Computed example of a mutant assay.
Amino acid sequence: MKIVDMRGKLPVHPQKRYQERPLNSIYYIAIHHSLTDNIPGGSDVEAFARYHVETNDWPGIGYHYVIDADGTVYKCNSATTKSYHVGKHNRFSLGVCLVGDFSNYPPTDIQYQATKELIQQLINAYGVTVDNVLGHSEFEGYKWKKCPCINMDKLRRDLT
């Protein structure tokens, strides 16, 4: 799995900054999909950051990690960053976004493999249980949202 560190290289808000949190406050890993087609070469990460800053008026990109269709993992925020990606659960979760619209097609095999590898690393690093690896729509208050449109039960089984 190839990880590219994008921290400090992405667009950020001119005045706003995300709050920090202790590592022992991380209990969940939130899985998202971008609802976009893949733009090769990591351009998605920069586009997401611009959108989050310019349209949403957020301090920076909301995800901690973005996984491209080619399996490249982009680290966008430190784990101590309380970014915006799953509402009132931000304080307790790491956000992982897979590039693609999985209501129309599944993740690529290499993307799915990279997702499993990354999540396993995060589980090991932060003591998150497999049962606390949730799709965006599985969080309280987000049942209406079709995100990430992958079989989360299968993903959790694949992690054990």
Results as ranks from 00 to 15, higher is better:
144 W>D: 09
158 D>Y: 07
30 A>K: 01
33 H>M: 08
69 A>G: 03
92 F>P: 00
76 C>W: 00
77 N>L: 11
15 Q>M: 07
80 T>W: 09
74 Y>N: 01
78 S>Y: 12
96 V>Q: 00
11 P>C: 09
89 H>M: 08
123 I>Q: 00
90 N>Q: 04
139 F>E: 06
50 R>E: 08
155 L>S: 04
27 Y>H: 15
114 A>T: 10
114 A>F: 11
139 F>C: 04
16 K>W: 09
143 K>G: 00
140 E>H: 06
155 L>E: 06
49 A>W: 01
50 R>K: 14
10 L>V: 12
145 K>W: 12
156 R>E: 08
133 V>W: 03
123 I>F: 03
158 D>W: 13
150 I>L: 04
43 S>N: 13
128 V>D: 05
36 T>Q: 10
104 N>G: 13
155 L>C: 01
109 D>I: 07
137 S>F: 03
82 K>M: 13
61 I>C: 06
84 Y>A: 12
17 R>S: 09
116 K>N: 09
70 D>S: 07
14 P>I: 05
132 N>C: 08
46 E>C: 02
40 P>S: 12
119 I>T: 02
7 R>L: 02
128 V>Y: 07
27 Y>S: 12
66 V>S: 01
12 V>L: 03
44 D>G: 10
81 T>K: 10
153 D>Y: 04
110 I>S: 11
105 Y>P: 08
133 V>E: 06
65 Y>T: 10
128 V>T: 01
127 G>V: 12
82 K>T: 02
35 L>S: 08
81 T>L: 01
60 G>K: 03
64 H>R: 02
44 D>A: 14
118 L>A: 07
31 I>E: 03
66 V>M: 09
96 V>Y: 04
132 N>A: 05
128 V>K: 04
60 G>H: 09
143 K>Q: 15
90 N>M: 09
12 V>I: 15
2 K>I: 14
78 S>T: 02
44 D>N: 14
138 E>I: 00
14 P>H: 10
84 Y>Q: 10
61 I>D: 00
8 G>Q: 06
16 K>I: 09
141 G>P: 07
44 D>S: 13
39 I>P: 05
125 A>D: 14
45 V>I: 14
78 S>I: 01
53 V>K: 02
102 F>V: 11
6 M>C: 15
96 V>R: 04
23 L>T: 03
128 V>M: 12
153 D>L: 08
125 A>F: 07
14 P>S: 08
7 R>A: 00
70 D>E: 06
138 E>W: 02
82 K>A: 15
2 K>E: 01
149 C>M: 06
31 I>V: 13
40 P>T: 15
127 G>Q: 08
81 T>H: 04
83 S>N: 05
104 N>R: 13
93 S>H: 01
69 A>D: 11
143 K>C: 01
110 I>L: 09
88 K>S: 14
